[in-house]
Computed example of a mutant assay.
Amino acid sequence: MVRLPIEEAIPALRQTLATGRAALLTAQPGAGKTTRVPLALLHEPWLAGQKLVLLEPRRLAARAAAAYMAAMIGEPVGKTVGYRIRHDTRVGKDTRIEVVTEGILTRLLQHDPSLAGYGLVIFDEFHERSLQADLGLAFARESQRLFRPDLRLLVMSATLDCAAVTRLLQDADTISCEGRLFPVTTQYLDRPIEGHLEPAVVRSIRQALARDEGSLLVFLPGMAEIRRVERQLVEASLGPNILIAPLHGELP
Score class of each variant (00 low, 15 high):
S157Y: 08
A48W: 08
P29I: 13
V229R: 03
E225G: 05
E8N: 08
A208S: 13
D112S: 12
Y118V: 15
P221F: 12
Y83S: 04
V202N: 02
E102D: 15
L251M: 09
R84N: 13
A245H: 03
G214P: 02
G49S: 09
S215D: 15
T35W: 03
E128Q: 08
A71Y: 06
T26E: 14
D190R: 13
Q50M: 14
V202E: 08
F139P: 02
L243C: 14
L108M: 15
K33T: 13
K33Y: 11
R84H: 15
G179L: 03
L154P: 08
Y188F: 14
E7R: 07
R227Y: 03
A71P: 06
L216K: 01
A140Q: 06
A22M: 01
A158K: 02
I10W: 00
V202G: 03
P5Q: 09
L220K: 02
R228G: 02
P29Y: 11
G239I: 07
E56F: 07
L220D: 03
H248P: 00
I104V: 15
A48M: 08
A61W: 01
E102F: 12
V229M: 04
S130K: 01
A18D: 07
Q170C: 12
R152M: 05
R21D: 15
L216P: 03
L153A: 09
L220F: 02
V53D: 05
P57R: 00
L181D: 04
G32I: 06
R21Y: 12
R90L: 11
R227Q: 15
G249A: 09
L41E: 05
K33C: 14
A64P: 02
A245D: 04
L181Y: 05
M72I: 08
V229N: 09
L153C: 06
E250F: 06
Y68L: 14
T34P: 01
I122E: 09
R90N: 08
G78M: 07
E235Y: 13
A224D: 14
T19I: 00
V100N: 13
L24I: 15
R227S: 14
A12I: 04
V99K: 01
T35A: 13
R141L: 15
L131C: 03
M72H: 05
S215F: 09
T89V: 15
P29N: 11
R211D: 13
R152S: 11
D171Y: 11
L197C: 11
T95R: 01
H248I: 00
Y68D: 14
E98I: 15
L160Q: 02
D134W: 12
L108T: 06
Q187D: 15
T186M: 06
V2I: 13
L160R: 05
F182N: 00
I97D: 02
F123N: 00
T19K: 02
Q28N: 06
E56R: 09
L160W: 06
A27T: 07
L52Y: 05
G82I: 00
L17E: 11
